[in-house]
Design a protein around this nucleic acid. Structure first.
Lengths: 164, 164
DNA sequence: CCATCTAGGACAAAATTAGTGCTAAATTAC
DNA sequence: GTAATTTAGCACTAATTTTGTCCTAGATGG
């Protein structure tokens, strides 16, 4: 019922995360800085940086600090489940807050007719999404797109942050 | 990354919808007014009314106007998929706005490396959730509130409905 | 006609998300 | 060792979404 009317919307950040990782997967071994990835994907640099920080903290990517540093995937694209990416950004999957253990002060209290029943749904979700890998999200290499010469510009961010 | 840190959160309204419908399923044939359902579920009346209006518009429940009117389920609880309920409240399932055909003005444009790839994910989602029915969300008739001794529940926690 | 009861839209407040900026820490290059 | 590069981690503001409520209109039954 939001602007798009879609349920199960994932956050834009998670969406960007998949785009960013798909880009990185193209050069799986190489280190890429946030700035370069931003340029290659078209996502604004601050946003790319934010996404990568989260992904790094959750172990989806590895980071190397310092000059010449950057990020690389922790494992091959066909071993990273999309659901893991989303969880890295948004936290554990659950259809409601009403899951085992959490949230002590439900106003409906012990009378809630569906308490604990969402677990089944959540399990089904995880199961269904667990099999879809990052590699499945990549298109078969489109030329002309996104692959504008990999230049390490020292020009800086003076060019301004394009909005996403 | 919200307060609960859960991804795939459904809205509270959709959550209420399941609670409301589970209540109605107990007396499948009978007409129940929004006021009565509100009283029996503990969800505030304006909210119950709102939920029922949406469910009615989408055909999940049937409505009867006028004195003595109310709502009843359109079909048995084991024929109503939970995902249908959620869709009735929140609109069609889709993990991103970036689905087939839709959304002409994605800033990443034609260069987006994952464009169209979400369809697979969404299909998997629908498939997994389509098999879970409202009937599966109901507890096997619990008399008296708070007894709660039920299969999966490891403890008396687990809630998630904000107060009204 | 009058008391009920749903339909539908409008709306303000609250909660969440998005996006940006700043400072610190690590690493490389000179 | 100093400077430049690049990630880490907050803190914060603005924009968007969700909630919850209200108000008016249309049906229905007695």
């Amino acid at each position: 019922m939001g602007q798009w009317g879609y349920m199960f919307r994932i956050s834009k950040l998670a969406d960007y995360a998949v785009v960013v990782l798909a880009e990185m997967a193209g050069r799986a071994e190489a280190l890429m800085s946030a700035a370069v990835i931003a340029e290659r994907t078209g996502v604004s640099e601050p946003t790319v940086a934010k996404v990568l920080k989260l992904l790094s903290r959750e172990g989806v990517v590895q980071s190397v600090r310092g000059a010449g540093g950057g990020y690389r995937l922790s494992c091959p694209a066909d071993e990273i489940a999309v659901v893991d990416i989303i969880e890295a950004i948004e936290g554990p999957i659950a259809l409601t807050a009403c899951v085992d253990g959490a949230e002590p002060d439900c106003a409906l209290g012990g009378c809630c007719g569906v308490r604990g029943r969402w677990d089944t749904v959540n399990a089904a979700l995880r199961s269904a999404l667990g099999g879809i890998m990052l590699a499945d999200m990549m298109r078969p290499a489109v030329k002309g797109c996104g692959s504008a010469a990999l230049t390490f510009e020292t020009e800086g961010k003076g060019a301004g942050y394009g909005r996403n």
